[in-house]
Amino acid sequence: MASAPALFGVVVFTFLLMRVLPGDPAVFFASGPNAGEAEIQAIRVQMGLDKPIPEQLVRYLWDIGHGRLGRSMGTGQPVTVDLANRLPASLELTFTALLLALCCALPLGIGAALAPNSLLDHGVRLLCTLGVCVPTFVSGLLFIYAFYYLAGVAPDPTGRIDIFASQPPTLTGFLLVDAALAGDWEAWHSAASQLVLPACTMALFVLAPLARMTRASMLAVLTSDFVRTGDALGLSRRRVVLVYALRNALLPVITIMGIVFSTMLGANVLVEKVFSWPGVASYALDALLASDYAPVQGFVLLMALIFVAVNLLVDLLYGLADPRVSVA
C-alpha cells in the first residue's frame, strides 16, 4: 500500500513523457503517406488526442482505475491482452536466466571468497568483468554464431518453440510448465532448447553482480566472530562454511537478487530482439518506435508493479532468512 504514491508518480510521469516525445501517432497510423489532413484529424479525434493534455491524463487515469490500459494501434488488441500473452515469455526467460546465474554465481563467489587472490578468484573476476563489459546483443550473437551456425547444436534462434513442434495447451503461459503438465516431452525439449541460448546470454550479464556480492559478503562473514567460534569449537569446515558463513552471507545477496530480477525484465529487450523472443520488452520497444502510447504506458506500469511485487517478496524472504527482521 505504501507504494501506491510511487506507482501513481510513475504512471503520470510516463504519460507526460510520451506526450513530450516527438512523433504524432495519428500521422504514423494513418492509412499511408498519402493520407489527407482530414483522415489524420479523424484518427486524432478517435484516439482522443485532440483534447487538452490534462483531460487526456484524467481519462487515462480513469481507464486505469477500471482496469483498461487502452488499445495497441500496432496489434489492434487491448494492451492488457497483449501484455498477458507476452509476459509469461519474458518471465520464463528471466526466471531461467536468474536461476542459471545463481547456480553459477553462488559456487563461484563462495570459491573466490574461500581463496582470495587465488587463480580461481582471478578467473571469477575475469568472467564477471567480461559478463558486464560485453553487451547482451554481442554475446547473444556470438552464442548464436558459435552454437547455431558453427557447431549446429542449437536450434535456430526464432521464438520460444520450434514452429513445427506441437504447441502445448496454454495453462500458465510458461511453455516448460505447460508442456510438462501436458506430458508432451517433445514440446518440452523443443522449448527448453530454444530457451538455453537466450537464458545463458542473460545469465552471463547478471552473473557479475551476484557473484561479486556473494564473494564480498562471504569474505566479510568469514572473518566474523561467529565463524571463528565455529572453528574454535571444532565444527567441520563444511558446516562452518555452509551453515554458519553462507546462510549469513546470503542476506545481502537476496537484496541484490531482487534488483537484478527487476533490471533483467527491462534489460531483456536486446536479448528478446536478438532471439526473436515474443516478450513484453520487445513489444514495448516496437510500440515506442511507432509512437504507440498505450502499450508503452502499459509496459511501464507493469514493470513498476512487478518491481513493487519483487521488493515485497524480497522483504518477505528476508523475514524468513533473518530472525532479526520482523515483517510487520
Binding site: S224, D225, F226, R228, T229, G230, D231, A232, L233, G234, L235, S236, R237, V243, Y244, R247, N248, A321, D322, P323, R324
Partner: peptide, 27 residues
C-alpha cells in the same frame, strides 16, 4: 586442520569477548 579440529571444542575450547557477535545470529 585434521589434527586440530578434533581437539578444538573437545579438548580445548575458547570463549570470546562480545558474546552476541560470537554466536551465529540466524541460528
Amino acid at each position: 586442520r585434521d589434527i586440530m579440529r578434533p581437539l578444538r571444542g573437545a579438548a580445548m575450547s575458547m570463549i570470546f569477548q562480545n558474546p552476541r557477535a560470537a554466536l551465529n545470529p540466524i541460528r
